[in-house]
């Protein structure tokens, strides 16, 4: 199973049967019928990826940035810091760097992309125009270095409407009234998209001391007062900005609606960290002019 075009046998059998199944709740199902969407089947996509931290980016091979020690390189983010102390010692980290772990990002995207590709393929199999109420999860399987990417959604046909161009169904995380409201707001869903950024913070002396609160002790920070730990702040900001940049690249001039953000921090040594940020949302496109509804009536519950 190396790419789309290879659904499991049971999938084909299931999707061929006449009746539909849908993951929609009853209110969402009702809203769906109201919008003229006919559910045609529950569709899913799955991919299991193996991670090995023992290669590049492993905590055991500190500093093996594939970009070497130079700034930049291959268009990936990297930023360096140099020791202000002028000390030469094996224990003194005279140099530090933040760099983007593009290999982690591309592996994650491969997992997400494969699962998504299979979801779309299943939907095409049932002749769907779109997939609504998509959920996606990625979590670690059992106790192994395996992450599974799983997507689930309800395939629908828009009654009395032509199929999307190329027969490729659109997809969205929204369902039910929320989808109706999106359409009402003048946006058509295009696809669910995700962007991830992984930034490795390889601390230099100042970051290490500040993160351990050792500044005053050696007098190297110059002060015992509080100060910003620039390298770490920059790392966090870079991870977020990169993730945003990665979704922007897939967006064209469309809008990314309802972004959910997940961040993860993994400490791999004193001051050394791996910072990850994932953004997911529905890419939507405006299909009519800005035409806001009047502000709704405010209400108070009587109970």
């Amino acid at each position: 199973m190396t790419g789309p075009g290879d659904l499991p046998e049971a999938a084909t059998r299931r999707l061929e049967s006449g009746s539909f199944s849908s993951g929609l709740t009853v209110p969402d199902f009702g809203a769906c019928l109201q919008m003229g969407l006919r559910p045609v089947g529950l569709v899913q996509g799955f991919c299991a990826m193996q991670w090995s931290w023992y290669g590049a980016g492993s905590p055991y091979m500190r500093g093996t940035s594939p970009y070497g020690t130079s700034d930049g390189g291959q268009g990936a983010y990297s930023q360096s810091w140099r020791c202000p102390h002028g000390l030469v010692s094996a224990e003194h980290r005279a140099w530090g760097q933040n760099y983007e772990q593009t290999w982690v990002e591309s592996a994650w995207l491969q997992g997400f992309g494969s699962a998504y590709g299979r979801l779309i393929e299943e939907a095409k199999e049932v002749g769907a125009h779109g997939i609504i109420g998509v959920t996606d999860t990625s979590h670690n399987l059992a106790d192994m270095n395996v992450t599974e990417f799983h997507m689930l959604g309800t395939a629908v046909v828009v009654e009395d409407a032509p199929a999307p161009p190329g027969g490729d169904p659109w997809s969205t995380y929204l369902a039910g009234q929320r989808l109706a409201k999106l359409i009402e707001a003048g946006f058509m869903p295009i696809s669910v998209i995700a962007g991830i950024a992984s930034v490795r913070v390889w601390a230099y002396c100042m970051t290490e001391y500040l993160m351990e609160g050792r500044v005053g002790t050696y007098g190297w920070g110059g002060a015992t007062s509080t100060q910003e730990i620039e390298q770490v702040s920059e790392g966090h900001l870079a991870a977020r900005a990169l993730a945003r940049e990665h979704v922007r690249r897939q967006l064209g001039s469309d809008m990314l609606h309802g972004v959910s953000i997940t961040t993860a921090e993994r400490e791999v040594g004193s001051g050394d960290q791996v910072l990850e940020c994932t953004l997911r949302g529905t890419r939507v496109r405006r299909f009519k002019g800005f035409d806001p509804m009047p502000t709704p009536r405010p209400t108070v519950r009587l109970s």
Binding site: R248, G252, S253, D254, L256, G258, I261, G281
Partner: peptide, 12 residues
């Protein structure tokens, strides 16, 4: 392009 983490209710 626009990015937003608002819900559809908030956007409306």
């Amino acid at each position: 392009a626009v990015t937003s983490d608002l819900t559809i209710d908030e956007a409306l």
